[in-house]
Nucleic acid binder design. Structure first.
Lengths: 186, 186
DNA sequence: TGACTTAGCTAACAGCGTTAGCCAGAATAG
DNA sequence: CTATTCTGGCTAACGCTGTTAGCTAAGTCA
């Protein structure tokens, strides 16, 4: 990693980011404005800039927190599960459905990784790699499937009568029936 | 369909939407503002509202055009292809890479279907259903995989060194090795 | 005590989508 | 041919956005 890590958040910056996460979850991305966040904190919008350089940094702080929450939720679901792929998928989907605005903020844009808490994205991605047996190409394909199912559900892009449980099942079966490449090679 | 179709665009509204598509492709979603679009047309922003009710309708017109372009591109790629699933995937990905801002506008939000040109979304989705043998659950899973791969690539969410061709291949292989449910049932 | 830092403030700027209201010219009705 | 209506521009303005500049009261520390 050649880029330098972002400076860790001050306690006050953490408070602001936590309030921003609350505001985001309560009102969605449109509700997350600097003025509305300031109002929630009992201060005025320009004062936020004493603690965070701009809105992108605020969002990065919220996103970093989101990755932590996601990794925790997935780890808890995986703990003692017999079918790790199914447990992982259910936990991934459940997290997104419980935090739709946060999930969208985490995934639906380009992401300046230099602003993220170091390592937090990798930790959230690790279980997918493990669940498919270590093949990175297969892991990326499975992640793409899971993200696609999730974001299309959140954005209501499937027909209203679509059986999403069945679609998840069909997709997971497909990935299960594929042998990881390292097994073929070794 | 209980909702009424949107009124078809007047010729002038079509011109404005076409200019909007050009502006979007040239400058991205942030560049697509009513004022900048008006400037490109040699008029002032409020005049646009004589032809389109609001920005959402403008975007819906652009999105409808996008679905037509996508359906045409996919149909052309599928014409005479021996491996339809691979051809479909390549065409889907190529369209998105050639029109990244348009693809994002088409997919990355909730979508008020009542504003779309009727049937245009269904036509774009049809080839996926055919390519997987008619199983709607499997088609949705395959679409989710394709969209996930595509949007994560556009948003640079994969590691820079990731072999996306290989990931696509692994995913397509997975879906190919799964038998459509109607075959199991029938 | 004096200097410096912290963390708030107001005022303001440019940009956004959008609305109200005005007006010139074209089309249409009597 | 005239009178009316419709079309499609316009300017001005409103409330919202992120952000900057500059001021100030309070706290910290040599």
């Amino acid at each position: 990693m050649t880029t330098t890590d972002p400076p860790p958040l001050t306690p006050r910056a953490r408070e602001i980011a936590d309030a921003g996460l609350e505001l985001l979850e309560a009102e969605g991305a449109d509700g997350l404005s600097m003025r509305r966040l300031a109002e929630r904190l009992g201060i005025r919008a320009p004062s936020i800039y004493k603690h965070l350089p701009d809105k992108e940094a605020l969002e990065a702080a919220i996103i970093s927190r989101g990755f932590e929450l996601q990794a925790d939720a997935v780890a808890a679901a995986l703990d003692g599960a017999d079918d790790s792929l199914t447990a992982l998928a259910q936990a991934y989907r459940a997290f997104a459905c419980e935090h739709p605005h946060l999930y969208r903020l985490m995934t639906a844009h380009e992401l300046n990784r230099a602003l993220l808490t170091p390592g937090v994205e990798q930790r959230a991605a690790l279980p997918v790699h493990e669940a498919v047996g270590g093949d990175p190409d297969l892991a990326r394909a499975a992640w793409a499937f899971a993200h696609g199912m999730t974001i299309l559900e959140l954005d209501r892009r499937f027909p209203p009568d679509a059986d999403l449980d069945a679609a998840w099942q069909r997709g997971l079966d497909a990935f299960r029936s594929t042998t990881p490449r390292r097994v073929l090679d070794g």
